[in-house]
């Protein structure tokens, strides 16, 4: 479960960056903490899809996330799939802005929302797939 460990480390990195007031780079860690769980899910339960994305140079995060959601909605409650989508969509858009947009640095109050998204994602994911976190 290397991807899960990487996800956990990215979450811890977010907390350290937040403590150090490095809010803009912390967005990156939040997003990847969630995205790595997406990959871990595909690797564990849908290895053919996971391998297909690994071999396809054109594979985008959007396709991997959509494949994850397609299977997640099928396997678990719609409500949980929706909560995961909400969180990862917001983090994905925010990550692009944080990494590439020549805008102002992220404010401290926005980090609270960032934290709520990543924690909602991890909490919901853990509800359905607790074995990843044992």
């Amino acid at each position: 479960m290397t991807l899960v460990k990487k996800s956990n480390q990215n979450y811890q990195a977010f907390l350290y960056l937040k403590e150090g007031h490095f809010y803009t780079p912390s967005v990156h860690c939040c997003y990847y903490s969630c995205f790595q769980l997406v990959l871990a899910f595909l690797q564990e339960f849908y290895p053919d899809d996971y391998e297909k994305f690994n071999l396809d140079d054109r594979a985008s995060h959007k396709h991997q996330i959509n494949t994850f959601l397609y299977h997640y909605f099928d396997k678990f409650k719609k409500e949980n799939g929706t909560k995961l989508k909400r969180a990862i969509f917001a983090l994905k858009v925010a990550r692009k802005d944080a990494d590439y947009e020549p805008s102002e640095l992220l404010e401290a109050e926005k980090v609270i929302i960032l934290k709520s998204h990543v924690e909602q994602f991890r909490k919901t994911f853990k509800q359905d797939i607790s074995q990843f976190f044992d």
Partner: peptide, 24 residues
């Protein structure tokens, strides 16, 4: 809506947000 979006053939993404979102 999210389930229906998965069937739309596009490279774009779609999402719903509200006040206080982290999204610009």
């Amino acid at each position: 809506l999210y389930k229906a979006w998965l069937n739309v053939e596009t490279d774009d993404d779609f999402g719903l947000v509200t006040d206080g979102t982290i999204v610009d």
